[in-house]
Design a protein around this nucleic acid. Sequence first.
DNA 1: CTGTTAGCGCGTTCAC
DNA 2: GTGAACGCGCTAACAG
Lengths: 337, 337
Amino acid sequence: MALRGKPTKIEDVAERANVSIMSVSRALRGVEGVSEATRTKILKIARQMSYVPNSAARSLAVANSNLIGISLPTFAGEVFADVLNGMRRTFDTAGYSTVIDTTEYNPEAELNWIRRLLAWQPAAIILTGIHHHPETRRLLQAAPVPVLEIWDHTDDPIDINVGINHFAVGEALGRYAVSLGYRKPAYVGTPIGHDLRADARYTGVKRVFEDACGIDVMIAPTSFDNAFIVGSNGTEALLHDNPPDVIFYLNDLMAFGGLMKCQTRGLHVPADIGLIGFNGLAVLSVLPLTLTTIETPRRQMGVIGAQKLLAKMNGISTERSIELPVKLRPGQSTRAQ
Amino acid sequence: MALRGKPTKIEDVAERANVSIMSVSRALRGVEGVSEATRTKILKIARQMSYVPNSAARSLAVANSNLIGISLPTFAGEVFADVLNGMRRTFDTAGYSTVIDTTEYNPEAELNWIRRLLAWQPAAIILTGIHHHPETRRLLQAAPVPVLEIWDHTDDPIDINVGINHFAVGEALGRYAVSLGYRKPAYVGTPIGHDLRADARYTGVKRVFEDACGIDVMIAPTSFDNAFIVGSNGTEALLHDNPPDVIFYLNDLMAFGGLMKCQTRGLHVPADIGLIGFNGLAVLSVLPLTLTTIETPRRQMGVIGAQKLLAKMNGISTERSIELPVKLRPGQSTRAQ
DNA sequence: CTGTTAGCGCGTTCAC
DNA sequence: GTGAACGCGCTAACAG
C-alpha cells in the first residue's frame, strides 16, 4: 500500500499470512483447495494490503485474458449505444472488461485495431457488420478467439453471427410504400459505399420498386455531415423540381431532419409527401407526428449476442447464425392505407 | 501461422532468422542496436510468420501497459461521444488502446471498474467529473497512474483536470434570462443528486434569480427516461397551472422535447414562453427556430485533455487544472433584448 | 488441504 | 552490433 511504490503482489500477501503463494492464489480466485479458515484469513490480509492482482501476469500464465474487444462504426447516434449497453452489462457481470474501437466505417482502421487487440489475447472479439478487410477474416480465423459479427445477418460468418437482414428490411419498407400507392420514391443517406448495411436497405427498396412498377429510386445528393443535417439538406435538394412523393431515409435522425425541412418549406406530411425512417429511436416519441419506420431490436441484439458469445467461450456449441426479426411500424408520416 | 495453434513468438522468429531473441526484440521495437540489414531481414520474416506480439508478456516485463481507461457516465446522447472522439484519435496515433466504461452516474460502479482496470497497469485513467467514491481518490493517488478528470473544473484535481465551470454556466444563463426580463423561471432535468454537473448549473441559475430578484426557480417533476421524453413530460407538468415564463433545461435534447411539447400545446415560443438549453448540439441546426443555449467545447476538451495527459505521461509537467471557456449563444427561443 | 517446481513471452542488464 | 542469463507476477501440474 506504499504511496507510488511497488504494488503488493501475491508473494507479499503470502508472507504476511504465513502461507504459500499458491494458497493465496487459490483463495483469491475462489477455487477449491483452501480451507475456509485460511481463505478468510488470506482475503482479509489481501484487503488490508490493498492487493491488486496483476492481470498481465495472469494473462501470460493462462494464455488468455478477460478482455473483450468491441468494434463499432461510430459512437454517433443512440443506435450503437443501445447495442453496447445490451452487451456490456452481460460481460461486466461475467467479469470481462471491454475494449472499444470505432472504425468510422473504415475496414483498414478495423484491421489495425484488431491487430493491436490480438496482442492482448482477448477472450472474444465483436465486430459490427459482415464486411471487413480481406485480411481480417484470415487473421481472425487463424486466431483462437471467438468472433461475433453483429447487426448484419449472414449465413457464412467468421464464427458466430446475430443480426438482421437489411436487404429484407429495405424490401419490406418498399413494399409497404408501394402498397400505399407511392410511385415517386427517393432516398436520402450517406454516400453509397460508406455504410454497407444502409446500402443493402436502399437496394431492397430499389428492387421492390423496380420489380413492382418499373420505377427507379432517386438518390439525393449527400455528404458526411451530422445525420440531422444530411436529412435536412438531402430533403431540400429533392424538393427543388419534380419532387418525390415519398422519401426513404437512412435512419430516423435523417428522417427527422427531413421532417423539419418539410415543415419550414410549408409542405404537409403526409398530405404532400411521405417520410420513412429506420430504427425506431426514442426521439420519435416527441415529434408532432409518428414516423413510419422499422423498429430494430438493438438492445436485444446486444444481449443475445453477448449470451451466444459467452456460451461459445464456455465451450457450449450454439447456432452459428441468428437472424432477428424486425417490426414495421406504420406512422402518420405516410398516407393511410 | 498455424491455424488455431500456438501463436508465433519472438523465439520462433529468431530461429528462422538465425539471430538471437534480443535482436528480434530490438528490431521489432525499432530501437537501436541492430544493423539495418538484419533489421530488414527480421521484419520481413516476422511479417511472413504473422507474428503478433504478446502484450501481456511485454506489460509484465516493463511493468506498465499501453491501455488507457476512460470512464463516462453514459453513451446516450452525442455529448460524450464528442469528447471521446476528441481523445481517442490522439491516443490511437500514440499507440494506445482505450478501455471504456460507462458508470450510469454510479460512483460505486466507477470504483469497481477502476479496480479492475488497475490490474492492467494502465498508462492513464480518465474520469468524467470530479465527484467520485471516497475510496476512488485514495486508490488512484496511491497508484502510479496519471489521472485526468474531465468536464468539470476544479482547483483540486486528483491529478490533472480539464473542464468547464458548470456553476458559472448556470449563472451566465440565469443572468441572461434576468436581463431579458424573465421572472418566473423553471427547471427541467433529471432528479437532483443524479448528475452533479447538471445540479451545479441549476444551482447557478437559482442563485442568480435569488440574488437579483428574490425569486425561486420551480423544479419540474422528473424521471430517468430518455432525455427527449423527460423534456417533454417535464414541460407538460409545468404548463398546467401558473406556468413559468422561461424554462431552463438540463440539456438541448430536453429543451427540444420541451419545444415539441409547447408546439403541440399551441404555445408560441418565445412569445408565450422562453426555452433555454445547454450544450449546443447538432440537432439544433434543423429545428424550426434557434435555441438559446451554451456551447460547450466538447471535442476540444477531449483533445486538450488527451494532450495534457500524454505530456504528463512523457514526464513533461503541465498545469494541473485548465478551465475551458464556454459561449452563450442567444437564440430565437427566448425573447429579444 | 497445502506446498514446490517449472514455465508463460518479453525486456533489462550485462557480457562479448 | 549481438547474444545469454535472469526476472517480471502469476498459475498449471504435480507432489506431499
